[in-house]
Computed example of a mutant assay.
Amino acid sequence: MANVQTQVLSDDAANDALLAELLSDVGLDAGGDEVIETVPESDGLGQVGDIAASVEMLDDSLLEEIDASAKRTDDMQALYAEQPAQPAIAAGETAPETTPEIAAAAPKKKRSGGKKKEAKAPAEDESAPAEAPAVAVAPVEDKKPKVPRATSVTHKPGDLLLAKLGDKADDFLVFDSTADLAQIEVDKIQFIERMNDRDAIADKVREKINMFLVWMAKGGSLNEVLKRAITVLHTDGQLTSGDKGNLQLNLLSKPYSVGTARSQANQMFMALPELGLTIKEKGRMIPNPNSPLLVGAYAALGLE
């Protein structure tokens, strides 16, 4: 009997403990009174029951303020997105201040609900240079290389004379009208060789020969000494040598000095036979009757 009684007592105590736990869950004690529990502080992580209880405690005005603030934030972000990109701020400058009031006062772009406008083609740049009209280019003709101008540096005296006479060399390098073509060619070659030989003909004499032949071929004014020598030869029929000779006396009347008249007369006594204009005799020179150059000189000077 003692064991049975002990078991009954144990069961009653268990039932009382279970009842007390149920009453504590609904906020009452075993006597029916309300129990005030102390809510433990949050450990930082929070529980679902705590978040739900906090949300229920917010009043309607606080929720409305949160919604309004969120809407203002969205509007500000949309407005900033529509603004053009600002230039970079240089060192030492301050960025312009933008306040909510300034942003609210800025005009908003209207969104068109209609059809999209077709993009216009970019206008032509008037400053761009116009294309030059095509120009027909004539074909370039093959040109022969220019022959360098003959000078006393590039040519010997005889070769330089040939270059000056050009195509007329064969017409004026004829010294005997009775000679055949072969002899005329031989005489011309020998003449050029003597002109190239500085020992065969003196420089001053060579200059007088050049003057005469270029004058015959191209005209112009004849050297004064040559002109007087040919004129005296035509008038007197001869040229006599020496200080009392007719050519030297004529030159003194220029008047030339005695020394100049003497040297110029000597040059004529050497140049005229080289040209075939005269034939040398003792103390004098006579005209060469077979000289085509002498006939041409008389005609050019009007001595016929």
Rank of each mutant, 00 (worst) to 15 (best):
Asn246Pro: 04
Met268Phe: 00
Thr178Trp: 01
Asn3Glu: 04
Phe175Leu: 15
Glu82Arg: 14
Gly158Cys: 11
Lys143Phe: 04
Ala229Val: 06
Pro122Gly: 07
Gly220Ile: 03
Gln47Tyr: 08
Val295Cys: 02
Pro84Ile: 11
Ala271Met: 02
Phe212Pro: 00
Pro107Ile: 13
Leu9Arg: 11
Val39Ser: 14
Lys254Ser: 11
Met57Tyr: 03
Gly114Glu: 07
Asp125Val: 05
Asn250Arg: 12
Ala138Arg: 11
Pro96Val: 13
Leu249Asp: 10
Asp170Phe: 02
Ile89Ala: 05
Arg228His: 07
Lys227Asn: 10
Asp33Tyr: 06
Leu23Phe: 07
Ile66Pro: 01
Lys143Pro: 00
Glu185Ile: 01
Met268Lys: 01
Ser24Cys: 05
Leu160Met: 14
Met285Leu: 08
Leu303Thr: 11
Glu281Pro: 01
Leu45Gly: 05
Pro287Leu: 04
Asp159Ala: 15
Lys71Ser: 14
Met195Lys: 02
Leu213Asp: 00
Ser253Asn: 14
Pro287Phe: 01
Ala104Asp: 11
Asn266Asp: 06
Ser152Pro: 08
Ala150Cys: 07
Leu45His: 05
Ser257Cys: 02
Leu181Gln: 05
Ala52Phe: 12
Leu294Lys: 12
Arg284Gly: 00
Asp180Pro: 01
Gly166Gln: 14
Thr38Met: 10
Ala104Arg: 11
Met285Gln: 13
Pro255Lys: 11
Met1Asn: 02
Ile201Lys: 01
Asp171Leu: 12
Thr98Lys: 14
Leu63His: 07
Arg194Glu: 09
Asn210Glu: 10
Ala13Ser: 09
Val258Glu: 12
Met1Arg: 04
Ala217Lys: 05
Ile209Ser: 03
Gly113Glu: 07
Lys188Tyr: 02
Phe175Met: 10
Ser61Trp: 02
Gln248Val: 14
Thr38Trp: 09
Ile192Ala: 05
Lys204Gln: 09
Leu58Tyr: 03
Tyr80Val: 15
Leu45Ala: 08
Thr98Tyr: 11
Lys143Ser: 06
Ile286Asp: 15
Ala128Asn: 07
Pro292Glu: 06
Ile184Val: 12
Gly276Trp: 00
Ala70Trp: 07
Leu161Ile: 13
Asp159Lys: 14
Gly259Val: 12
Asp167Pro: 11
Lys110Cys: 00
Gln77Lys: 15
Leu301Phe: 08
Gly220Asp: 09
Leu18Trp: 13
Thr6Gln: 10
Val225Met: 01
Pro145Tyr: 03
Asp16Gly: 08
Ala90Thr: 03
Asn3Thr: 03
Leu173Lys: 01
Ala169Glu: 12
Glu21Asp: 12
Ile279Phe: 00
Val4Tyr: 05
Asn210Leu: 09
Lys108Gln: 06
Lys204Pro: 03
Val26Tyr: 03
Pro100Ile: 15
Gly44Cys: 10
Pro292Trp: 08
Pro145Arg: 09
Pro87Gln: 14
Leu79Gly: 15
Met216Thr: 07
Asp67Glu: 10
Leu233Gly: 02
Thr99Tyr: 12
Ala105Arg: 10
Pro287His: 05
Leu22Ile: 13
Asp236Thr: 12
Lys188Asn: 03
Lys115Pro: 04
Glu131Cys: 03
Ala20Arg: 11
Thr99His: 11
Thr260Phe: 09
Val232His: 02
Gln267Phe: 05
Leu79Cys: 14
Val147Asp: 04
Glu185Met: 05
